[in-house]
Simulated assay, not measured.
Amino acid sequence: MSVTVLYFASLRDATGVASEILPTPVSLAALYDALLARHGFSIARERLRVAVDGAFVDWNDPVADGAEIAFIPPVSGG
């Protein structure tokens, strides 16, 4: 089974894509840690927000097959 991962801001820049389909992870934390190693993200997990199916969740919340996961880095504006 699989999930869709959405990337925003610097994470999108690092991956070169807006989204990708990946196998359903054991946990959100494990998924981000694997992506951090794979794509060389410069943002630690503790600095991100994570959303599943459009709602902010805790890193320990379960992930269902077919979910849409968004990693949202801190942003600044001016």
Rank of each mutant, 00 (worst) to 15 (best):
M1W: 10
M1T: 07
S2D: 13
T4S: 05
T4C: 05
V5L: 03
L6Q: 08
L6S: 08
L6A: 00
Y7F: 15
Y7V: 08
Y7S: 00
F8K: 00
F8E: 04
F8L: 05
A9R: 01
R12Y: 06
A14G: 07
T15H: 06
T15D: 11
T15A: 08
G16R: 05
G16M: 07
A18I: 05
E20L: 00
I21E: 15
I21A: 13
L22H: 03
P23W: 09
T24S: 09
T24V: 09
P25S: 13
V26A: 12
S27M: 09
L28H: 02
A29H: 09
L31F: 06
Y32G: 10
D33V: 01
D33C: 02
A34K: 13
A34G: 12
A34H: 07
L35C: 09
L36E: 05
L36M: 02
L36S: 02
A37F: 09
H39M: 11
H39Y: 15
G40C: 03
S42L: 12
S42K: 15
I43T: 10
A44L: 03
R45L: 12
E46D: 15
R47W: 05
R49K: 15
R49D: 03
R49F: 11
V50P: 06
V50E: 11
V52S: 06
D53E: 06
D53R: 00
G54C: 02
G54R: 00
A55T: 13
F56R: 07
V57T: 12
V57H: 07
D58A: 13
W59Q: 07
W59F: 07
W59G: 10
N60H: 10
P62H: 11
P62V: 12
A64D: 12
A64T: 02
D65Y: 07
D65S: 15
G66L: 02
G66E: 08
G66Y: 08
E68P: 04
E68T: 14
E68F: 07
I69D: 04
I69A: 01
A70S: 15
A70P: 01
A70K: 06
F71T: 05
F71E: 05
I72E: 01
P74F: 04
P74Q: 01
V75P: 05
S76R: 08
G77M: 02
G78S: 02
